[in-house]
């Protein structure tokens, strides 16, 4: 598909230079964690995140679907994002100090 006129493959074709493999892996992992974190959200928060960011509905449309005021949609979104941000921060902290974890168990 990407062959040159002489049949050779120039080096710079088939190259995506934006992210290196480590960054791609890191990004994929982040998205997996984010999906997990969304699944763990309380239902009322999960709904608004899915409807807004996965389905692209406006606040008014979400309010109609859920049968609640648009102000409620706004505050739920804000609290849901705060919770997701906390989860992501927690994840980063865990990774920075992975080894000491077991010693912290208390009997």
């Amino acid at each position: 598909m990407a062959e040159g006129a002489d049949g050779a493959l120039p080096d710079r074709w088939l190259v995506d230079d934006r992210l290196c493999p480590e960054q791609l892996l890191e990004q994929a992992r982040l998205h997996r964690h984010l999906q997990g974190a969304i699944e763990c959200l309380p239902e009322a928060f999960r709904e608004v995140i899915v409807l807004r960011y996965f389905e692209g509905l406006s606040y008014a449309e979400i309010a109609q679907v859920l049968g609640c005021p648009a102000g409620t949609v706004m505050s739920r979104l804000s609290r849901a994002k705060a919770a997701l941000r906390r989860q992501l921060r927690h994840l980063t902290e865990q990774e920075e100090a992975p080894v000491r974890r077991p010693e912290q168990h208390e009997g």
Binding site: A2, W13, L14, V15, D16, D17, R18, L19, Q27
Partner: peptide, 11 residues
Amino acid sequence: TRGQLPLDIVS
């Protein structure tokens, strides 16, 4: 944006 769609030509 996820890096799952490599380009055939970069220029």
